[in-house]
Design a protein around this nucleic acid. Structure first.
Lengths: 247, 247
DNA sequence: GTGTTCGATATGTCTATACATATAATCACG
DNA sequence: CGTGATTATATGTATAGACATATCGAACAC
């Protein structure tokens, strides 16, 4: 297979490390289509010979590729290229303040409503908690260069996030505050489209009935609900972008 | 730290392997909040002593956690718990036929238009190719239990995907055909909301002006554009779901 | 005080070896 | 002709030791 690489001065001429070279080599072959899904890649002992290195080194390269789901390793059978896992993409949603300032626009924030109460039935369903407890309900608006950017309707479980009781949500948007103060372990986003009702239309300064992009996000820590939020963006002016890069 | 584990009969009593135990142990501490973001986790030589194992074993556990972005390793300084990477989630978009049949509903498909042509200026911009070439333009509709589910407007670069010339898009939806025949390496999705224009409204059997969820997807192989597609879903009946599970 | 050098140290890579374990392939048997 | 036991083999885990490399801090020079 003539894979042998230049190692005339083992740790001096090589820029990337050996296992990384092997990993990138295999990755390139997979992504270029040279080794299509289902293809059996050379056995470890073959790669050992090709690259003149120990099995541990080959194994390290293959293990990383396996962890990244590019290949599948089966004992006795060998190592195979995985078929791409049906269109998936990583959606990155930064907090809104960061998103707006990253665009070089000035960030504005207005707290519309902030109340503390004992969770009612609606709150409990929305958060997904069984027994009643204290919650904070927040409505606020984010703007970019003084133009309404999104409105936010949030519920925080005060029993799960007691520190929220002392936060000043008039000064700092709850999304930013939570992101910086409360670690979370699981999150779920549901993305849909709605027509602006009169309230949303007024807050966003758009016509009633205009299309809006909606993100409903739930966040947990160790299975316990922390917060539920609905973000409404004017639909035609906002896009969510998700990317997938093989490897 | 009293982390020592039971290894009275090294490879017999242990269910999970040693490095996996170490990995899960550390993972648990991080996800439970016991070791918060920024916390320095014990040095490798400390973990070696705690778990009575070699450094390679500890290192393997830490390397996997680092690859999964839960920790950050810095030479000379030590290993630290990373702060969560600003709300990110994995969005999985399966092809529409699979999505509908997975819901136990019957899948229907109508090809509305399919034409082959030399790429005009609009096509070139949409695909992001410089010089002109042949393309296939397809319009079609997907339905679930005979109810319109989504409409699709797609452009395929015939020079990048010559096999598409022989595909029968009246029999098989282009999304499914591409997924099964054409490997890709990069994809980008932009998600937005629009009002249904009269054409979309008629195809989807919804009122003109109704909110719709739009996915614009571009797919490349090795940096070369393969296809550009716009999918329009009735907004209130469809949700995209994205999840993030720590670890 | 300020910048430089240098040593200590934690992680990063690699080797050679050993044994464990899952399983594909083969073979013996009813 | 299946079918169950056996074997061969590729990956999986683990060890001990070696050297590479980045970098924090302290000692040093200016």
């Amino acid at each position: 297979m003539s894979l042998a690489i230049d190692r005339s001065k083992p740790q001096l001429t090589d820029k990337p490390t050996l296992y990384k070279q092997i990993r990138l080599d295999i990755e390139r072959r997979i992504l270029s289509g040279e080794w299509p899904p289902g293809h059996r890649i050379p056995f470890e002992h073959e790669l050992m010979a090709d690259y003149r290195c120990s099995r541990m080194t080959v194994s390290k390269a293959l293990s990383e590729l396996a962890q990244a789901d590019l290949i599948e390793r089966r004992r006795r059978a060998g190592t195979f290229v995985r078929r791409p896992k049906f269109l998936s993409a990583v959606l990155t949603i930064s907090d809104i303040r960061a998103e707006i300032t990253a665009l070089g626009r000035s960030y504005g924030y207005q707290l519309i409503k902030c109340s503390r109460r004992i969770a009612n039935a609606t709150d409990r369903i929305r958060l997904g908690v069984g027994k009643t407890g204290k919650v904070i309900a927040i409505a606020c608006r984010h703007s970019a260069d003084a133009v309404p950017f999104a409105i936010e309707d949030r519920l925080i479980d005060l029993d799960a996030v007691p520190e929220a009781a002392t936060a000043d949500f008039a000064a700092e948007p709850p999304g930013s505050w939570l992101l910086h103060h409360v670690p979370w372990t699981e999150a779920e986003h549901a993305i849909s489209a709605i027509s602006a009702d009169d309230e949303a239309a007024a807050s966003l300064d758009i016509p009633i009935g205009a299309p809006c992009l909606v993100i409903d996000r739930h966040t947990w820590r160790g299975g316990r609900p922390l917060t539920a939020v609905r973000l409404i963006y004017p639909g035609e002016s906002h896009k969510l972008v998700a990317r997938f890069k093989g490897g």
